[in-house]
């Protein structure tokens, strides 16, 4: 059922049937290290280029999600997946062997939110019985495309984030009794541009979009922060979190204790030198599948608002002096009781 301006509340909520997360070595050494399904010590994933490494990462994660859920691959009707690279090469090459009809998505680091939005609509609308949502990023491919070659020496500002090498994949289905958690609603984000031009401060570029989507979710569902056990943004990092909390406070919402951020959870910035936190679409996707969903499944969190955030930045628009607009997609995930 359509709700408010940008939300949907599912009368028969799609459920998450299976989840898998695979990350790189550095992420494995972080605070969530033990929660991931697999930590790959070789950042090349056995491939000979970084791009092929990320494709391999996607393939392995998809296979693992299918295996863990004991699902037949041919029963998955659609795949909603994306990554950060130009023309989505990690996804397009990584998912060839899956032979699942694909919707390739680019929402920068918000891709997992976009995939869950579309995937749950496809299920709830009756267009599929099972779909897969997946997103990945790789530190080396992202650095190469958006910043500098890995061997180049430079000093990263404190506001910069560290692209996560990781992938998260979930299989969505219809039957409540088989589910790990339910997706009861979505709030789709829109572009928000506050004129930030600093590509090393993506938290500041994305925070207004997270604010907008959370606010929209509250308005559409007629709720406030007390409705959720956690509100979890994607990769705002330290600077973005500060801004989001300030903005929400101005609107009379205190998110101090209810809010957390996947980018802040995945690394220990003090010991891992990650500055503002983790980022990349693999950040929110892998944290969802390792940290968030198990807590919702166990009932420790009854209801969360998962809000992956993306900075829609390209090296071309950046060099042409354009700003960095942001987007954030909200997904309401709930515990399935007996």
């Amino acid at each position: 059922m359509q709700l408010g301006k940008a939300s949907v509340k599912f009368e028969e909520p799609p459920v998450i049937l299976s989840m898998a997360s695979i990350v790189g070595k550095k992420e494995g050494e972080g605070p969530l290290g033990k929660m991931f399904d697999m930590v790959e010590q070789d950042d090349m994933f056995g491939a000979d280029t970084w791009e092929k490494a990320e494709s391999t990462l996607q393939k392995q994660t998809a296979d693992l999600a299918i295996e863990k859920g004991d699902i037949r691959r041919k029963d998955i009707r659609y795949l909603f997946a994306g990554d950060l690279l130009g023309q989505l090469i990690a996804t397009s090459f990584g998912t060839v062997d899956l032979e699942i009809p694909l919707f390739g998505l680019f929402g920068a680091c918000s891709t997992m939110g976009e995939a869950l939005n579309l995937g749950s609509m496809a299920i709830a609308g009756g267009f599929a019985d099972k779909v897969m949502a997946m997103a990945s990023s790789h530190f080396a491919t992202a650095e190469k495309q958006f910043r500098f070659p890995l061997g180049y020496g430079n000093q990263r500002p404190y506001s910069s984030s560290w692209t996560v090498t990781g992938c998260g994949s979930v299989v969505l289905g219809k039957h409540k009794k088989e589910g790990i958690a339910a997706i009861t609603g979505i709030t789709t984000g829109r572009m928000v541009d506050m004129g930030i031009r600093d590509s090393m401060n993506m938290g500041a570029a994305m925070a207004p979009s997270a604010f907008h989507t959370i606010q929209q979710n509250f308005d559409d569902f007629q709720v406030d922060e007390s409705y959720y056990d956690k509100i979890i943004t994607g990769d705002l990092g330290k600077v973005g979190r500060t801004i989001l909390l300030d903005f929400m406070k101005n609107k009379g919402h205190n998110l101090e204790s209810v809010h957390t951020d996947c980018g802040l959870e995945i690394f220990d910035s003090e010991t891992q030198d990650t500055h503002a936190g983790g980022s990349g679409c693999g950040c929110s996707a892998s944290v969802l599948c390792s940290y968030i969903l198990p807590k919702v499944q166990s009932g420790e969190w009854k209801r969360v608002l998962f809000v992956p955030t993306g900075a829609l930045l390209s090296t071309v628009s950046f060099n042409e002096g354009e700003t960095i607009p942001g987007i954030a997609h909200g997904v309401v995930i709930e515990h399935i009781g007996n």
Binding site: Q155, Y158, S159, I196, A204, I243, D246, F247
Partner: peptide, 20 residues
């Protein structure tokens, strides 16, 4: 959003840590 871009830029500068 009620805050304008210029004010936001100044505010971001305020909350962003920099190297000493």
């Amino acid at each position: 959003m009620e805050i304008n871009k210029k004010a936001y830029e100044a505010y971001v500068k305020e909350v962003t840590p920099v190297h000493k």
